[in-house]
């Protein structure tokens, strides 16, 4: 290994954590939330208007709250309450779902039209 090799390797190892941080923590805040009930879209909401939404799933009503650009499950008739423990989400591209009650929240940015193209 030459000195340049070693220097490059050290520089890369040093920079790698920053790449992780940049890609995992800087997705941009979401503009709107899409709520899915089963396979169908239940509603779309801007994250700029604070409100509470009730969605009826197979187990019963789930309560979702939007406040200051963030969204969370307040209450859901599931057993594990994983969706509630996830807490607030506000990054574009993130998902939160109450799987037993078949309700999902998907956050999107402004320009996103599709998430995958297949040929």
């Amino acid at each position: 290994m030459t000195r340049a090799d070693l220097f490059l390797l050290l520089a890369v190892m040093f920079a790698l954590p920053f790449v992780y941080q940049a890609s995992w923590h800087n997705q941009g805040t979401a503009a709107q939330a899409v709520i899915l009930n089963g396979k169908h879209e239940h509603s779309r909401h801007s994250l700029h208007e604070d409100r509470r939404i009730e969605v009826k799933g197979p187990l019963g009503p789930s309560h979702i709250e939007i406040k200051q650009g963030r969204i969370r499950f307040v209450d859901s008739p599931c057993k594990a309450k994983v969706c509630i423990q996830r807490g607030w989400i506000d990054q574009a591209g993130t998902l939160n779902a109450c799987v037993p009650n078949r309700i999902a929240i998907r956050l999107s940015g402004l320009h996103e039209q599709y998430d995958s193209i297949n040929y």
Binding site: V12, M13, L16, V19, Y20, S23, W24, Q27, G28, A92, G93, G109, E112, Y114, D115, S116, I117, N118, Y119
Partner: peptide, 21 residues
């Protein structure tokens, strides 16, 4: 650019970059 124009794809980038290194 061509196949998955979703910002979520970049979440995979550091992982694959680590393996590439």
């Amino acid at each position: 650019m061509l196949f998955i124009p979703h910002p979520g794809i970049w979440q995979l980038f550091p992982v694959l970059l680590s393996f590439a290194i």
